[in-house]
Structure formats: structure tokens, C-alpha cells
Write a protein that binds this DNA or RNA. Structure first.
Lengths: 338, 338
DNA sequence: CTCTTTAGGACAGGAACTGGCATCAAGGGG
DNA sequence: CCCCTTGATGCCAGTTCCTGTCCTAAAGAG
């Protein structure tokens, strides 16, 4: 007789109200609209209790909009804070892939947040999902690739980020700018994304001083498992510390060109992120900024039309070398190079 | 006297155990390692209760690894399912941007999942965060842009996805392939990502039949707010239905080239997703597949070295046109085009 | 071995959860 | 305008289960 019959009061297993609150949250996130009776059915409680649970959610700060009358129900609405997100397997994988892409294209300061979120998810993600992520990553990478940036392995990024978050000592191999390799043992402090690169600010236990390391020159990170206490960084902040040691952030390229094609066509081929102005003679003026001449070249090439460069001059030079190489490539038959 | 002093039993507001379970989950997600006493402190309960709460989490299926002895504590471990994710504001923004990118580069079937997750997050995201997402999107777009695909507005994608999920009628403007514009009222059924395009499978209420719509030709979607019941789709599934109406999926381009540069250099410039084989004479062979000739061209250009194309022939042709246009561009002075 | 920290049983008081019932309010449809 | 459906709220009684205290075990670290 596994099911004890109770006249009233709480029933079945344990952690009831907690578990039910989470399940309710999860249900409200999958569908927009839920009838009270349906929720009661799913949660195995009376309608009255469902209403109380909904009230509980509201008290927790997650607004639930009611809808009365026939075909009424509840729906989760935007509140002051984001409720705990309940995602299924596929969504989790998509989420991680998206965050990886976001972490590796440090555009507008979301890179750090991407890595933080990534750390959270990776930590608790079932292993089977990690495998799926690994399998898909190689495929996805292409779409998120940004030409000439020194790229960091996703695994490295996550491992270092977690070590920072958890204040765990970190060992790794480092290849300095002068190609000298060394083994390091550090107390990782913060991860900073500057320009197109990732930097680790850490206290180097061997050198007994603060250092910053470029993540793309860092290999085989492994945590020793030992945690360490806080230590004061001399500079004003991690980002300032890195910037003091670098002082050169890649300067963006301001592209300005005239395209021999109508505005609409250029826009459809180039995307919405460039500014495109119409000109009187059916051509248009294309302006955008990027950090890479390669990217600028691709954009101009993708317009599929003739164009003229107003600036910058180095782009013109870059185009010339590409044109020369392409021309040579079209004249070579087979694999005979050199 | 706002704080009632109680000798025993539960205290303060309401929804205690639920709220505490969520807060515990949130704490365990931010740091890897938490001492029991610290948790007790944060949650304002006794140590014994914290242990019981941890037990509750374990019963809910979220393994919490203990660590005994000095400097012991708890940490959330990967379990069978992903626990509800508690993310802060910045992480939420990063998450949405990542998912948007994932939804718009339909690589390996994660596109649908990205859109689903996106729907969940958007629905409950505080408005101030939505504004931040909107502000950042234009900046981010560049990095996730894939050359010549018909691009779909993020807002459109989300709106249609939500209408599908919630079974709500949808009105929109549609521009067919023959440029004829029309107003549609449909019952949206599913969103399918095929090749590089998004398709909406829906029952057209005006035409009284099932149709599939390309999302990039769809504008100003708006839900009427009225829900509808399930309706049987004639074909085997949404994807099959779309495929039946299309039948041409963009064929991938298999690129095979020889580069006049050493393997290491090519790899560092091109990325890890292409296969690069060493050749005897210091050159290397580069192979990869992509759906876009433009992309292939960029990749070859980014190697920064001379190269020869083994195939496909259309790539050679494509290179020639680019080279010609680039050459012309370098010969034009100023904005005088045509 | 000792110290620290988690694990978990027993216990008692009391808070809080549950279902049922009644009343009110709000939409939708005829 | 009336009726029906569905959510909002208050109250009650029964009982469950949550909480802090006390205590004993067990497991790592030094």
C-alpha cells in the first residue's frame, strides 16, 4: 500500500512546497497561458492551493498576470528580476553555444558576463549535454569566427573563469611574447576582456608579484584544488591593471566607401549594422567601423558591386594585396604552387 | 517593532522554505564552494536547517557534493537535469545576445532550441534589460553576421516563436516571391529552420489551407491575443511540410586549396574548424566546407599568403570577380564612380 | 591523534500548509 | 442585461512538517 490516503493536510513525499514552487515556475515558463485547473491537475493539488502557490510566486517577486472569465488563466510577466530559468536539454546546449560565441567576440562588455554565465551553466550541466556541446562546437565555430584575433579555446576560458570565481590556485603553461615558455602557479584574480583579447590578472606565486597573462598564450590550465584568501591588488582595478601593462588597444578601422548599387540591395547583402546613405546617382555610401581590415574587405566584397574607397588608406592597400593574390590564384592550375 | 522575536519555529515573512530553496540554489550557483556555516548565516537559519535544505535539493535531483574536514563545504554538481538557472542582469543580457546569434546562424539544429529558450527569457525579462539588449544588439550584430543569408529581424523571430508556442493567432504582412504583398491571418503551427532560412508553418485562415512562410519576407507580426485549438497538419511534420514546398537546400561548398604558408601560421589565421594538412614543400593543404562562396573567399584571403584552388570551380570564378572588382576599386580616386 | 566539518537521528513546540466552503470581482457570450 | 466561467480572498479545522537544540558518527586535513 504505497499511497497513504489522507483526509486532509499535506501528502506524499518531501520538500513539497519547494518542489512545487519550482515545478510551477517551470510550467509557467514553457507555455504562456495556463488555466488554474490545469495547473492543479499537473501539480496534484487543489485549485485553492494553486492559487496560494501563485500568490507565493508573486510574493517572491515574479509577477503572474491573471486572466479572468472563460478561457482564463495565468501567465508569467516580466518583473523586477529574472526568475530562475528552467531550460530543457536542447535549450541548455543552445545557451552554452551562444554564450561561447558571446565570450569570444568581446564587443560591448558582455564578454565578461558571458563567461560568468558560462561558468554557472557548465558547472551544473549534465555530462551528456557537455558532450553534445563539444560535438557541436566545432561546427558552430565557423559562424562565430572573427578573422585575425588571437583565439582562445573555450575550455581554457571556462577553466580560468571558474578558477577566478572560486578562488582556486591555478597551474598553467605560458608562452611569453618572446616565445619563452614557462610553468606558472598563480592565484587568479580576475578575467578581463580588452580589445579583442582576454587577459588573466593573477598573483604569480613563483615570481611573488602581480602579473597579467594573455589567455591565448596560456595552455593546459589546471586547478590544484586549493583555495586562497583575498589579496589586495595594487592598481585601481583589474581592468586598469591590464591596461597599464598594455596601453595599446587595437584601433578600429573606419571604413567609408561608395558602392555602385542601390541602397536596398546593399543593405540586404551587408546587414543592418552598417550605415548606408542614398546618393543621387543610384549609388550609395557605406560607412561602418570594424577592428579588422579583413572583415572590411569581406563586407565590400559581399556587396557584389563595384565600389570606391574614401578611406582609410590602409584599406586600399589591403585590397590591392588581396586582389593580387586572388588574381595569381586564378592563374595557377592544380596544386603547383611556388 | 518590525521584527518579531520567536523562540522557535519558523520566522519572518511567508513562503519561507520555497524562497530559501531558491536562494540556496542561487548561492550555490554563484560560488563553487560554500561552507555550511556561511550558508546558515546568509539564509538566517541554523546549521541544522541548512543541512536539511541541502538534503531537500538532493531529493529534488540536484546533487550537492559535500566536502568534509577543515575548509569543507558544499558545491553544486552536475546531475541528471539542469537546475533552474539563477542569472543576474548582465548575464541575462549576454544570454539573450548569445541566443539571438545562435538563432540566426542555423548550424546544427540548435537554432530551434535557441528560439525556444529566447522565448522563455524574453517573456520574463525585466524591461530595463530588454532595452539594454536592444541597445547592444546593433553592435553585436556585426560579429555574428553571416554574409549573404536573408536575415530575419530578431524581434520578428521572437514574436512568431512566441505565437507558435502559445497557440495565438497571428497577423502579419507578407511579400511573396513574386513581390506581391498581402495581409495574412494565420494559426501559427511551428517554426522551422532549414538551410539558412526560417520558415513558419501555419494554417492560413483567409486561404483556408496550410502554408509555409519565409520569415525574412514577413513583416510586422502582431498577435491578436485569441488562442486556438490544435489542428492536424496533413504532412508528417512541420519540417517535412516545409521541405516538400522548397526542395532546394543550399548545397555546401567543399573548398580544397593549397596555401603557400606553413601549417602553424595558417592554422593561427584561419581557426580550428578547417582541416589543415602539412605538405612536403612547406606549404599546406586547407580543406573545409561552408555554405557561402563569400565566406570561402574571406578565409582564403585571411591566410595572408598565396594559394591555389583545387575546387570547386565556382570558387575560382568567384575569386576572379572579386579580384577584378578590387583591382578596379584601387584604381578609382575619390568618390567618382560609374 | 586532534581538530574541523558534514551527516543524521531524536524531540518538542508551534508555525504553516492543505482542502473545503462561501463570497466577491471580472470577462465573454448570448 | 443576464449567465456562466474563472480568478481573488477570507475563514476554519486538521495535521503535517518545519525549526532549533542536543547528541553521536564519520570523514578529511595537518
Amino acid at each position: 500500500m504505497p499511497v497513504p490516503v489522507l483526509k486532509s493536510g499535506r501528502l506524499d513525499v518531501m520538500g513539497n512546497t519547494s518542489s512545487r514552487t519550482l515545478r510551477l515556475l517551470s510550467l509557467l515558463q514553457t507555455h504562456r497561458h495556463w488555466a488554474g485547473s490545469e495547473l492543479a491537475d499537473r501539480l496534484n493539488v487543489s485549485l485553492r492551493t494553486v492559487r496560494r502557490d501563485i500568490d507565493r510566486l508573486r510574493d517572491l517577486g515574479y509577477p503572474v498576470d491573471p486572466q479572468r472569465g472563460i478561457d482564463g488563466g495565468y501567465q508569467l510577466a516580466p518583473g523586477a528580476t529574472l526568475p530562475p530559468l528552467v531550460v530543457d536539454d536542447e535549450e541548455a546546449v543552445a545557451l552554452v553555444l551562444g554564450l561561447l560565441a558571446g565570450a569570444q567576440s568581446p564587443v560591448a562588455g558582455t564578454a565578461e558576463a558571458s563567461v560568468r554565465a558560462l561558468g554557472k551553466v557548465i558547472q551544473v550541466m549534465p555530462k551528456r549535454l557537455r558532450r553534445r556541446v563539444d560535438a557541436l562546437r566545432s561546427t558552430t565555430e565557423q559562424a562565430t569566427w572573427v578573422p585575425p584575433a588571437a583565439s582562445v579555446e573555450g575550455d581554457t576560458l571556462i577553466a580560468v573563469a571558474q578558477a577566478c570565481r572560486d578562488s582556486e590556485r591555478l597551474d598553467f603553461d605560458y608562452t611569453a611574447a618572446d616565445h619563452v615558455r614557462s610553468q606558472r602557479r598563480v592565484e587568479p584574480h580576475r578575467l578581463v576582456s580588452l580589445g579583442r583579447n582576454w587577459y588573466l590578472v593573477a598573483y604569480d606565486l613563483t615570481r611573488q608579484d602581480w602579473r597579467s597573462f594573455r589567455l591565448d598564450r596560456l595552455a593546459a590550465p589546471r586547478t590544484t584544488g586549493t583555495r586562497f584568501g583575498p589579496r589586495d591588488l595594487p592598481a585601481d582595478g583589474a581592468a586598469a591593471f591590464v591596461r597599464a601593462g598594455i596601453a595599446k588597444i587595437p584601433r578600429p578601422v573606419q571604413v567609408d566607401a561608395v558602392i555602385a548599387a542601390p541602397v536596398d540591395e546593399v543593405r540586404s547583402r551587408v546587414g543592418r549594422w552598417a550605415s548606408i546613405d542614398e546618393r543621387a546617382d543610384g549609388t550609395c555610401r557605406l560607412q561602418f567601423s570594424t577592428e579588422s581590415l579583413d572583415w572590411a574587405t569581406l563586407t565590400l566584397g559581399a556587396t557584389g558591386a563595384d565600389f570606391a574607397i574614401q578611406g582609410p588608406p590602409e584599406l586600399l592597400e589591403h585590397l590591392r594585396t588581396w586582389a593580387d593574390r586572388f588574381t595569381r590564384a586564378t592563374k595557377i592550375r592544380g596544386a603547383r604552387l611556388k
